[in-house]
Design a protein around this nucleic acid. Structure first.
Lengths: 126, 126
DNA sequence: CCAACCTTGACACAGCTTTGATAAGGTTGA
DNA sequence: TCAACCTTATCAAAGCTGTGTCAAGGTTGG
């Protein structure tokens, strides 16, 4: 089996031609082209278009989400940055003990100043 | 240093209180609460709020994208499905050779029927 | 007890995403 | 040559995101 045109591929997969162009524009499925520029959808593309619909439906995600996942996989710097941000997550301080809280509550202003200073450190350090 | 209120944390990190609530709602940073329900932002949260701004700015992504990355990391089934969909990507058939194309071009209708049959197989197989 | 916080919830609005429709023009096969 | 495709580009509508603001009400410290 060989390549189908965009309308044939649309009928086959349940997308509209419009959406196939959109899916291409966001980088998810980029079919080959004939010399004159017509899109050619092969068996692989048809497969992926079908499973793409299932993926979106079954997990309640959008095309943009899949596009972002693709970007994550292609941009090593991005995925590293996101991962390391997510990594730091469980670092949550326990609920404050009552007296410790009181001690600090006494000078709210000093706390904010301290926080601001810490923040500058954070910004330059990061 | 101990916990800050939402307004203090906002001033410290450059977000607005509104946005801190939004960031919490989409699951990115969920501060502890006092017994009466006030949010308490600790050093860890302040850090993460600052680096979150950098992350968004430096990589041109949105809060929703980070939220999706978090979802990917928490939902193993989801990340597996997305990954395996993306994995199949490079499978693109080469541009069709001229005579092979001609042979197929001769009965367009048969091609579509064949594709539809293949599609049914695909759907049940996936 | 009051000012100054905090909470949730709702309305609103600009801007982006997703999708359709339509126009102007090129390709192709009978 | 002509019908039936294809292409890109544009306008448009519906919905979601990110953000502000306001209201009604609880908490807290002086």
């Amino acid at each position: 089996m060989e390549a189908l045109t965009i309308h044939e591929a649309a009928e086959t997969t349940g997308w509209t031609p419009r959406m196939l162009r959109y899916i291409e524009r966001i980088g998810l499925i980029e079919p080959a082209r004939t010399e004159s520029g017509y899109r050619q959808y092969g068996a692989g593309e048809l497969q992926r278009l079908c499973t793409l619909r299932e993926l979106l439906a079954e997990h309640e995600i959008g095309l943009g989400d899949v596009a972002f996942a693709l970007r994550l996989r292609r941009d090593e710097a991005l995925s590293g940055a996101v991962d390391s941000w997510l990594e730091a997550e469980p670092q949550r301080p326990e609920t404050v003990s009552a007296d410790e809280w009181l001690r600090w509550e006494q000078e709210k202003h000093a706390r904010i100043i301290a926080a601001l200073t810490t923040n500058e450190t954070m910004e330059t350090a990061a």
